[in-house]
Design a protein around this nucleic acid. Sequence first.
DNA 1: ATTAATTTTTAGACAAATCTAAAAATTTGT
DNA 2: ACAAATTTTTAGATTTGTCTAAAAATTAAT
Lengths: 218, 218
Amino acid sequence: MTLSEENYLKAIFNLQQETDKGVSTNAIAEFMDTKASSATDMIKRLSEKKLLIYKPYQGARLTDKGRMHAVKVIRKHRLWETFLVENLEFSWDEVHEVAEQLEHIDSDKLIKQLDKFLGYPKNDPHGDPIPDENGNIATIEKKILAELQKNDEGICVGVDDSSSAFLKYLDKLNISLGNNIKVIEKEAFDNSMSIEVDGNKLTISSLASKNIYIKKTK
Amino acid sequence: MTLSEENYLKAIFNLQQETDKGVSTNAIAEFMDTKASSATDMIKRLSEKKLLIYKPYQGARLTDKGRMHAVKVIRKHRLWETFLVENLEFSWDEVHEVAEQLEHIDSDKLIKQLDKFLGYPKNDPHGDPIPDENGNIATIEKKILAELQKNDEGICVGVDDSSSAFLKYLDKLNISLGNNIKVIEKEAFDNSMSIEVDGNKLTISSLASKNIYIKKTK
DNA sequence: ATTAATTTTTAGACAAATCTAAAAATTTGT
DNA sequence: ACAAATTTTTAGATTTGTCTAAAAATTAAT
């Protein structure tokens, strides 16, 4: 399996999460920041390798084999991100680029031992679940902060946007995973929110509140 | 810099250590387990990038730029090997293959932090020196065990052959880095040796004794 | 039910890295 | 010095992954 094939598998896996329809050639091309003709070529290759099933105008769907492979890459990515933050003093906005490289290292023993070394972590530094060895991905009942009502309360368990800009912004606001967040006020005018983060009051925009996941406690 | 280019650079660096002559196309091809025509192509590319200077029939020599890059790859390789043995329970005969992949990961911060995490190690699990950030490689006065005389004594500081087969053989004999080794007897007939390793007496073949490095103490 | 818009595929080219087979250049041996 | 042996290069093909531009297929709209 080449690096490029793995990246396409990952892309298709991610796009598939968002719908129950097949993933279109154009959608894949856009996600991969490439041209539709390139996507067509790769779809053909992955299809020949039985990693996905493709029907024109109905999109691509990963086979069990394809899904398993994609999840393994995601598992590696998230374990490496955890290592970088926990052991190499990376901050959560710096890990992605390096993990994109490390995720393609091929060694079962390596990933097994890394998992053990890290103490079998459940989530990566952005709160995303780390798939287990068998490809199972745990889900938790989380809500988008923007959907909470006044006086609702919960724990910050993840972010939807893992871009460096957004993560740095959260750092500045002192919002991080595990924080207790309470909705003080919702502003109907622009959908901004007054919230209390571990005791500190602050205001965040609608856009920001749509990218923060909360596990409700109240 | 592509993966393949880095591997050729490393090969040429290694071959250059063994002679003061330039490294021939054929020698490179043989080392890389490929054909001379492929080596010619790559030499041309590396030459265009000013990573080496090549004169037909006189061989290739790395420029400062080329040497620096090769050494950086070697630094990464040896740091990762150290990590695998020290933290992920790999044995010294298992690390090479994985390190061959990890050495190509491109991130200055990663390697700097890994070095710090490992406590700035001086040598990798095979006793080879880890180049510093500036590309300097420490040398120690070591001798091949086969060259020691009766009653000579020293510390095992490295191996010349890092093949899995040889390293496993050393494990079986309970020989590892740091052991004190004393020559009890040299057999003129087949050049085998009786030695004492941290108190235990054993006999090793001429071939084995040529692949063990000793830092003499007596 | 045709046209229009969109989606997808094909055709042909390119760069990287390799190969085989043959040709060219250089060195060595007598 | 000349043929023989060796080393190196060229020429042309192949695979992977990409591109542009154009053609074909399908879906949507009036």
